[in-house]
Amino acid sequence: MANETAVAARPPLRGTGATGSPSRTRRGSSQRRRSATGWLFIGPFAIVFIIFLVAPLAYAFYLSLFSKGLATGTTFTGIDNYVKAFTDPSFLGGIWFVLRFALVLIPVQMAVSLSAALVLDAITTRFARFARLMIFLPYAIPAVIGALMWGFLYSPTFGPLQQLFGLFGANAPFPLSPDNVFGGLMNVVTWQWAGYYMIIIYAALQGIDPALYEAAKIDGANSWQVAMRIKVPLVSSALVLILVFALIGTLQFFTEPAILRLVSNGSITPDFTPNLYAYNQAFSYANFNYASAISFALGIIVFIAVYIFLFFTRKRGSILS
């Protein structure tokens, strides 16, 4: 308990006997269970995993090695689709967008959720409890419906923004115009997910032993110092977890632009994000092979990005073994 950061830095596969010293003396029993029994427990999940993840993925990879034109048959083209993807301005443009988006969105999202969690951890009034629930609430709303609501709120004709600006005789900016779409989408995503991240951080904060704060207080630290020097470091593994989630989610950005595309007046294009591009290649243009290649290329980029991130935060062990 005394140092949770150390706990967090440890690889998750502590398996047998992570709880303390006695485990070292029980090698014998561990050996005994080095059998196939483990597979019996994992088996049901493994079957689902193989059928609905490994097999489709393998099939998608297989598809990505072929090319099919409308006027030609399917031919084996090896890595041609990947070469094409990495020279395709649509794909590269989409990657560039999601990278920039992640770079701006994630810090903002983290700032909102972390500051909210710290405040909620520090004060326990009735209003704070109410606020905690309200901030968390958007997580209960399906992304499809959330995006639909924001589409209405962004409306230049009958949305509240227009009314607000109308009071001053001005025209409201359209949050989904080509110049504003970055911020317009960022707002929707922050609204949808910040509460969820806040709850995770909050839960981690609640697990900290308050005695630590008392000690700091005695040393003369104020609340701000306690928050920055004790609380934040102690929940750093929660923060890393959230960052990884946010990074993966942002690089695979799809639902919100897909829904808001309909009301974006053309600023969200079919190749806006790599995932959207893959979806449209597959379902609109019947290029399943190329779509599979794009998805794979994206998967590789996500993997590299997460790995780099974890490398820099020196927490590799806590997420990826």
Binding site: F49, I51, F52, L53, A55, P56, L57, Y59, A60, L63, I248, Q252, F254, P274, N275, A278, Y279, A282, F288, A291, S292, S295, F296, L298, G299, V302, F303, V306, L320
Partner: peptide, 17 residues
């Protein structure tokens, strides 16, 4: 690692399956 797989990569082959 499977958390990083893009959904679109799975939808089509899962449909076929």
């Amino acid at each position: 690692g499977s958390v990083m797989v893009p959904l679109t990569a799975l939808v089509i082959p899962t449909f076929v399956l």
